[in-house]
Design a protein around this nucleic acid. Structure first.
Lengths: 260, 260
DNA sequence: GGCGAGCTGG
DNA sequence: CCAGCTCGCC
């Protein structure tokens, strides 16, 4: 059983990359972020043709998440409100959360806000969003299922997750406030499965399009897979597949895969 | 001596096509229309590197003309107002006219308004613009130089210049009013040099991007080269080069070349 | 409908 | 650097 997360930065532009990758890698579940397309225009057929189902939650231009899976998902829910009620409805205007159940496993797929610049409106929104995410995951953890929470977190948890942590306290995606917000969430009982297998730094999942960042390996590890305790024990591998980032017209992110 | 006219539909997008074509065709003067770029962003260096000068008159997004030449132009003037005075200044807001002298030859490069739909505001503007052009060329013909007037005229002079002239009287680029306006200009003493060499129809310089018009050869001959009488006598060839229209990401127009 | 530029977001 | 959008042109 293999489950992956990949911010594709437009599923329509990256459709051949995505289906090619599914065919060669044969993961069972692929969580996509930044699909950037309304549900009516999501290229569902391309996934059906190669034997996958798609649960989608999109909007025009921005954000958008989807779970591609060999087995159909049950109990799919989109956004925070179905779990937390209308008090959080404002956070569902941006389509960043989708979840569903496969067997005894709940998969949560997230596209955490980027935060723009430290102290900006968007940065405040990101921190508030993470608080809501805490309540959301707390609720889901009451279920009997195993829990896998993955996606583009737009946060580098440790300094070794950044190519150059100099001045990180002023850099969005690495400030103390963001890290603490995420650590509070993890204290609910989730662990970064990549770190079960890889202890050193220099492993990245995102490289800016600008300044030839990929060629110079100036990356960040901001795409994560978090597991509930017993699932964490069962994991036998977790890796970043850099190959898709080397293709023509790549996404700026590359997939992370966990295997059980 | 070879002189060409080509509506490139954005010089930045078509820069490789344009410089490649100059290198293989080695024309002495190339008149460009729809450069779609302000002068500060015009890719002058690309032409300098291959041995050409550039006289430019552009604006952001729309219109824009340029004359690319092996020898530098003298007496360059941009727009109608330098010749006709401020009464026509309103017509220079759109950058559609540039002229300069090489040896004993004045080259006038035009991007005639398209006219949108018959009877529209833009159609009226086109007819008024053609009246101003008449006065402009009348003034230039007082000079002792030979005169070459070329560009995208957005007018098919004869029915044989349209793939299907059915209902042309209601079609912009082929109405009687436009044709007469152009014929009045030509009566100043200018002749279509393409017709010195080619008498039959079915020769086009523009094919709409839509409906696979190029593949089906549904074109129009709207890019012209007009010459003063003694120059007309000296012309030894005039041809449309369809090759650039067959490239990847082509302009919707293709070059017309006259040789002396 | 096919395209390009300029804009906004990352 | 790249994505999609909005706009205007043809």
């Amino acid at each position: 059983m293999k489950i992956a997360t990949w911010n594709v930065n437009s599923i329509r532009t990256r459709l051949p990359h995505t289906t090619d990758w599914l065919k060669t890698t044969s993961v069972d579940v692929l969580c996509l972020q930044e699909t950037k397309v309304v549900d009516e225009k999501f290229p569902r057929d391309a996934f059906t043709e190669i034997g996958y189902h798609a649960a989608i939650f999109g909007q025009p231009s921005y954000n958008g998440v989807a779970i591609i899976s060999r087995e159909p998902l049950s109990d799919v829910s989109r956004g925070f409100a179905p779990i937390l009620g209308d008090r959080v409805a404002e956070f569902d205007q941006q389509k960043r959360v989708i979840t569903g159940i496969i067997g005894d496993l709940r998969v949560v797929n997230l596209y955490v806000p980027n935060g723009s610049a430290v102290g900006s409106e968007k940065y405040i929104y990101k921190l508030r969003w993470l608080e809501v995410l805490h309540d959301y995951l707390k609720a889901l953890m009451l279920e009997p299922n195993h829990l896998l929470v993955c996606g583009d977190f737009n946060i580098a948890l440790e300094d070794i997750d950044i190519h150059d942590p100099t001045g990180r306290v002023n850099q969005v995606m690495a400030t103390d406030l963001e890290r603490v917000a995420l650590q509070v969430i993890l204290r609910l009982g989730l662990a970064d499965v990549f770190r079960k297998f890889v202890k050193d730094g220099g492993h990245f999942s995102w490289w800016d399009y600008r300044s030839a960042a990929f060629r110079r390996d100036l990356g960040w590890r901001i795409d994560h897979i978090y597991l509930s305790p017993d699932l964490y024990e069962k994991a036998i591998a977790c890796a970043i597949d850099k190959a898709p980032r080397k293709l023509e017209q790549p996404s700026d992110h590359t997939p992370v895969i966990v295997e059980f």
